[in-house]
Amino acid sequence: MRVLQLIDSLEIGGAERMAVNYANALHKRVEVSALCVTRKEGQLKTLIDPEVPYLYLKRKRRLDVAAVLRLKRFIQKHKIEIIQAHGSSYFLAVLVKLITPGLKLIWHDHFGNSEYLAGRKATSLKLLSSYFDGIFAVNEKLVLWSKQKLKVKKTFYIKNFIAEALPFDTDFEISGAKGKRMVCVANLRPQKNHHMLLDAFKLVLEHDAGYTLHLFGSVPESLYAKSLVERLEEEPFSKSVFFYGTYLKISAILPHFDIGVLSSDSEGLPLALLEYGQAGIPVITTDVGQCRAVLGDFGKLVPAQNPAALAEAIRASGFMTDDKAVDVKKLKDRILLEYGEPIVIQKVISKYAEII
Rank of each mutant, 00 (worst) to 15 (best):
R2I: 02
I7G: 04
S9Y: 06
G14F: 04
R17T: 13
R17F: 07
M18H: 05
A19S: 13
A19L: 10
Y22I: 01
A23G: 09
A25S: 14
K28E: 14
S33C: 02
V37W: 10
T38D: 04
R39A: 04
K40M: 07
G42E: 09
T46V: 11
E51R: 15
V52W: 10
P53F: 12
L55I: 06
Y56W: 05
R62D: 05
R62Y: 06
R70F: 00
R70Q: 14
K72T: 12
I75R: 01
E81I: 01
Q84G: 01
A85T: 00
L98D: 00
I99V: 06
T100V: 01
L105K: 08
W107T: 05
Y116P: 07
L117E: 12
L117I: 08
L117Y: 13
A118P: 02
A122C: 13
A122G: 09
A122F: 03
A122S: 14
S129M: 09
S130T: 09
Y131G: 04
G134V: 03
F136I: 07
N139H: 06
L142K: 01
K151C: 03
K159E: 10
E173S: 14
G176M: 12
A177I: 11
V185K: 07
L198T: 03
D199L: 10
D199P: 14
K202N: 14
L203S: 11
L203R: 09
L203V: 05
E206T: 07
T212E: 11
G217V: 03
E221K: 03
A225Q: 04
E230F: 00
R231Y: 06
V241Q: 08
F243H: 06
K249F: 11
I259C: 15
I259R: 12
V261R: 02
S264I: 08
G268R: 08
L269E: 13
L271E: 01
A272G: 08
L273G: 08
G277K: 03
Q290Y: 14
N306M: 14
P307R: 00
L310P: 08
A311K: 02
R315I: 15
G318N: 10
T321G: 07
V326E: 15
I335S: 02
Y339N: 06
G340D: 05
E341T: 13
I343C: 13
I349C: 12
I349T: 08
I356E: 11
